[in-house]
Design a protein around this nucleic acid. Sequence first.
DNA 1: CTGAAAGCGCTTACAG
DNA 2: CTGAAAGCGCTTACAG
Lengths: 384, 384
Amino acid sequence: MAGIKDVAAEAGVSVATVSRVLNDHPSVSPDARTRVLSAVETLSYRPNAVARSLRTDRTRTLGLVISDVLNPYFTALARAVEEEARTLGYSVIIGNADERPELQDHHVRTLLDRRIDGLLVSPVDRGSPLILDAVRAATPIVFVDRWIPGVEVPVVRADGRAAVRDLVAHLLRLGHRRPAIIAGPAATTTGSERVDAFREALSEQGVALPAAYIGLGDFQAESGRRVAERFLDLPEPPDAVFAADNLMALGALDAIRGRGLSVPEDIALAAFDDIPWFVHTDPPITAVAQPTQELGRAAVRALAERIAGRVPPSVTLPARLVVRRSCGAGFPTGRRQPGPAAPASSAPDPPAPHPPALDPAAPDTTSQDSAAVAPILRTRRSHP
Amino acid sequence: MAGIKDVAAEAGVSVATVSRVLNDHPSVSPDARTRVLSAVETLSYRPNAVARSLRTDRTRTLGLVISDVLNPYFTALARAVEEEARTLGYSVIIGNADERPELQDHHVRTLLDRRIDGLLVSPVDRGSPLILDAVRAATPIVFVDRWIPGVEVPVVRADGRAAVRDLVAHLLRLGHRRPAIIAGPAATTTGSERVDAFREALSEQGVALPAAYIGLGDFQAESGRRVAERFLDLPEPPDAVFAADNLMALGALDAIRGRGLSVPEDIALAAFDDIPWFVHTDPPITAVAQPTQELGRAAVRALAERIAGRVPPSVTLPARLVVRRSCGAGFPTGRRQPGPAAPASSAPDPPAPHPPALDPAAPDTTSQDSAAVAPILRTRRSHP
DNA sequence: CTGAAAGCGCTTACAG
DNA sequence: CTGAAAGCGCTTACAG
């Protein structure tokens, strides 16, 4: 593989000059520039990024440690992050923690060893001394989605409280009186916050959330199944289940149907995090949708600010409720009625006859499906 | 951040000695070793991977360029790749091509600039001069899933022909007579092979696949929707649609239901690539499942061989048909019957009363659901 | 077993 | 505008 010396020889200049044209340094004669450029061409020279990074102490690389690649929410987040990073001239290296603290630390360590310029993390726990050390060492870090309380790091996340309040109103309106929740690990902020939001919204409506109706999951499908089964074994099972992420909702759905029960007739189901497949599950699942794209973009911008030495503010974006049929809504449970296709829309579900109560202060937090699916169906480049 | 010099000073030895203990070189006195190790500890020293790579000309990093991160198939593949790579002491950097040749080349270029030790690619087209150059330059490369014909590179992929033959038998047995296919781009091997397999299997049964029943998609949801709509607009629409990947199946399902039609009563639907959500779509979708985990592992092992200078063989693993209800199978279309839960299984669907014809030479190619979902439900670490 | 020194491929003051 | 030279943080023959 040709090096900068070969290019210099071919062009009849010094390596310094080659380096200058490669880096768009102003003081290079037009003649030298052309010769270097053509030498680069004929040798198909490509600068060695490793050497460059060692010299400049910058890698133009961002690390992103996500909790679980198999979770479509994080996959969408990763895509948005890479897109925005590319715009800003950065590459991103993704580390998948698989919800395991050791694996998270493995990736953080590897990323740090590689001297990435900045780190985006969705921490799987509150502990990691490694992350705390990195923060102390002034490594540019931004938390996305989840964060570690008490640590001085900008956080980019969604606030689901209004949407959860809408969900609770929706459930109560449909007659559900014994709502339960499959929570994420208490060690994660999203694990505890979602339970808190649910409990508070219920208590505002005078409904209690007994301990037996709070099941502890780990954000993975299998735990959703396990907790749902425990709920169904209760002397008085809940009549509605809210899963704190989409994978646990999948597991819960599995468990419910495994008992021969049906959603929403026997038990209602809702999930935090909306994904395209929820439109097509049986029944379509009501979910709290995060503005994933925007979160990813905002996180990268904040991190770029931190890298530039500035102190970006945390950003909190609202989530919104997407109503479908999994909590019951007066829809016929059998076949859909024929109707005209909705050409530019991805919302095959008719509007719910009884929209949930809206928080008047946030009229846009609730919507009827579709927007959540749009990313996968619309923002992709269509076939030429 | 402490460097090797600081460690040397702290331990009272030369940097050479520090380097030796860090790299487990045998000729280091026990005394020197302990002192270096404790210096490393007190300074929380971490070797700079960038400098190390420059010197050793190895990055212990693999590049993986996948066609689309939003496609659960590739996400599962990426996870398997990272897992196996980690076992072998490699990190992996994922590049998402989003089915776009320019983006694929962007990532390949970036990865090459970073001097990754080897590259795993699932090419989005047959062209990329960049990839061909890399092959010519003897960069260790292995193709996964898709490949570029005529290029001397090991290929790790699944052969879906037997499974597609099973699918065709299944469709015909259920009375479908006008099967159509939503193909992937002809520029990809998986795009053309799946059509060929489908056409051949049909012709073996004396059924033609007219041009009007071959729709060209791009492996993304939106194209599945578009092609399905075109099918439904035909004077004589197909009575079964086989989507060449899971995202196009999602789009097709959208389009079909947007017309108020239902699956499988009005039209059957099947997909290539099985994903956990297919168990819970309405109806559950019959799919050709690839051994994704094994493909990822095998690809990494082959690449490691190539990096070591050996010439690994290509590997082809069989795919298998997973029968669910989307092609019709005599299941009631309404509610499920109550029944006991299947504790350790993720297959809520009862066995199909009419299993498809099996190729006697490959009795294990067909199965009844479940196994495909197992990865996400079982192989994850459960909550402690 | 140990250290001084060269060198990996770049970038960038510095001097001209 | 240009080049010689130092140096980024490591590893590794080489000599002792």
